[in-house]
């Protein structure tokens, strides 16, 4: 038996993304501005996420009313202009250390201890 601790590896970036962008307390007060508020805000941010892979491959859920063409063109633009980890094979880069079973996970650098 290994030491079945949960991981917080670099490969969990996708999980971080989901948690931080999709979950967490949503503040609906007038004094609060948030990228989640409207489809206009954060369109660049969403484009950055989309450039992980294309939005279609990734199945990103954009808010209804989002101008998808604009997001896509931003995403394309972004991937042309920034260094992308092997864009022709997007499966490679963001997936380090994900295919472990619990017993294989020997967490050495766990946060929060």
């Amino acid at each position: 038996m290994g030491d079945p601790k949960p991981t917080r590896a670099q490969g969990d970036l996708a999980e971080t993304l989901e948690l931080l962008l999709d979950k967490g307390v949503v503040v609906n007060a007038d004094i609060a501005v948030s990228v989640g508020d409207t489809e206009l805000l954060g369109i660049e941010l969403r484009a950055a996420i989309a450039s992980f892979e294309t939005a279609a491959e990734y199945g990103l859920e954009f808010p209804t009313g989002t101008d998808m063409e604009r997001v896509q063109s931003k995403a394309d633009h972004s991937s042309e202009n920034s260094v992308q980890p092997s864009p022709e094979d997007p499966k490679e880069a963001p997936h380090q250390s994900v295919n472990q079973s619990a017993k294989e996970e020997q967490t050495s650098s766990q946060d929060g201890e």
């Binding site: 949960p6 979950k23 967490g24 307390v25 949503v26 609906n28 472990q100 079973s101 017993k103």
Partner: peptide, 27 residues
């Protein structure tokens, strides 16, 4: 760990995270 002790399945266990999924929406 015990659950995954069978053929053909794998488990990924991540955390600890702040309770993002369990947080409310507030006005």
């Amino acid at each position: 760990d015990e659950f995954v002790e069978r053929d053909g399945i794998e488990i990924r266990f991540t955390g600890p995270w702040a309770p993002y999924t369990f947080s409310p929406e507030l006005g």
